[in-house]
């Protein structure tokens, strides 16, 4: 197994001198290819900041990030855009689908931007929409879909470029438990079948139990790690235990 993501002494400071706030305070992290990593922690712990930095959306104050062996600080805007296009897929809490495109066009978007041949794009859309079980809906518009279908459309869009990493920021945040389970199943399947690395920020212990490893952040630092080496159910209970140990934990958002 090779390392796909690595950070060294990663720091992010918000605000100007005087009123500054350390969102991330020296994070060292290694993610292997094919990993399914969860990031948990209370609000303000720096989960989303970490995700944004690694996924090239934001720039760190100091420290280094290696994605597929490339140091992100050295890349220009064009190269970053290319990296986002080819190597990274995103799934967001509020789906972020384009309302004025059909499901088909939404999924096709990253490949269309790549200027792939339209026949290849359509084949690929067909394949990936079957994988996520939304093939019957591809001519519909987002407003005609349920939340779960929307999020699976977003997942399909994230996966269509066959990225090496998928970043998911609270992907189940706006879904009911049934839709959440369906989406997480698909993500797990995607991780197993295509060996796609997944990095997922979540509050939800149930969602986190699908991960192989979990990182707990607190006040911008890594507070704890958990590895799954048992069934999902037992892992779920271990997560809950850990969360309650740092106070607030799983109940912080009840």
């Amino acid at each position: 197994m090779s390392t796909i993501i690595e950070t060294k002494n990663l720091k992010k400071v918000y605000g100007t001198k005087g009123v500054s706030f350390n969102a991330l305070d020296g994070i060292d992290l290694k993610v292997e290819k094919g990993d399914f990593l969860g990031i948990m922690g209370p609000s303000g712990a720096g989960k989303t900041t970490l995700l944004n930095l690694i996924s090239t959306i934001d720039k760190p104050t100091s420290g280094e990030i290696f994605l597929e062996g490339k140091e992100l600080n050295n890349l220009k805007d064009r190269e970053l855009a290319k990296l986002r296009r080819n190597s990274i897929g995103f799934i967001f809490q509020d789906f972020n689908l384009l309302d004025n495109m059909t499901v088909e066009d939404n999924i096709a978007l990253p490949l269309a931007l790549e200027r792939k041949h339209h026949k290849n794009i359509l084949n690929k859309v067909d394949e990936i929409s079957s994988f996520f079980g939304i093939k019957d809906h591809i001519k519909k518009y987002p407003y005609q879909l349920s939340g779960g279908q929307k999020q699976r459309t977003a997942a399909a869009r994230a996966l269509i470029t066959s990225p090496s990493v998928i970043f998911a920021d609270e992907p189940t945040g706006a879904l009911d438990s049934k839709s959440s389970a369906e989406l997480l199943q698909s993500m797990l399947k995607m991780n197993e079948e295509f060996h796609t690395t997944v990095m997922m920020v979540t509050h939800d212990a149930f969602a986190a139990s699908y991960c192989k490893r979990i990182l707990f952040l607190k006040d911008g630092k890594i507070y704890a790690r958990l590895d799954k080496n048992e069934s999902r159910k037992e892992f779920f209970h271990r997560i809950l235990d850990l969360l309650s140990s740092f106070g607030g934990g799983s109940h912080e958002h009840f």
Binding site: I57, K82, I88, F90, L113
Partner: peptide, 9 residues
């Protein structure tokens, strides 16, 4: 969102 999925400036 479009920038996040890799549209350049």
């Amino acid at each position: 969102m479009l920038r996040k999925i890799g549209m350049t400036q």
